[in-house]
């Protein structure tokens, strides 16, 4: 196996790992009990899966076509910044509209703080 085949293998391997992680995250969305744990599965592992796929595509195109794709770099940075924030906003909207947590929940620290704030105002 010479160097260029090795680099192609690295790119393809990263894309495969990204796909597997995306499948795991989809299973997490199906199997977790409430919206908060589901968003945990949906944002974290999907972000990692997409990032690994993009990095794999970037390396593959770089090694085979000898072309550095600026669009892929911008996409990596963009997804890395925005995907956790979108998850944060969805969960925040869910909490503020009083979506119930699963019955296994031990502690809700935010509720005490929010109650104290509404008493003051």
């Amino acid at each position: 196996m010479n160097v260029s085949e090795m680099d192609e293998f690295i790119g393809a391997f990263l894309i495969l790992i990204g796909g597997i992680i995306s499948v795991i995250s989809a299973m997490g969305i199906i199997r977790f009990p409430d919206v908060y744990t589901r968003a945990h599965a949906a944002t974290k592992s999907t972000t990692l899966g997409v990032l690994l796929s993009l990095v794999g595509a970037f390396i593959y195109i770089w090694m085979t076509e000898n072309y550095i794709s600026v669009r892929l770099v911008l996409g990596i940075v963009f997804v890395f910044i925005t995907a956790p924030v979108s998850g944060h906003l969805i969960i925040r909207a869910a909490y503020r509209s009083k979506v119930n947590m699963t019955e296994d929940t031990v502690e809700d620290e935010l509720k005490a703080i929010l109650d104290k704030q509404t008493e003051v105002h």
Binding site: V70, R71, F78, I81, T82, V85, H88, Q117
Partner: peptide, 26 residues
């Protein structure tokens, strides 16, 4: 009560420049 949106506003300030760059590039 004013809603505290620090995370969304901060990220927007960064991401808008990426979007504008992509727009000019396209």
């Amino acid at each position: 009560m004013k809603i505290n949106d620090v995370i969304l506003e901060t990220v927007t300030k960064i991401v808008v420049f990426i979007i504008l760059t992509v727009a000019v590039y396209l």
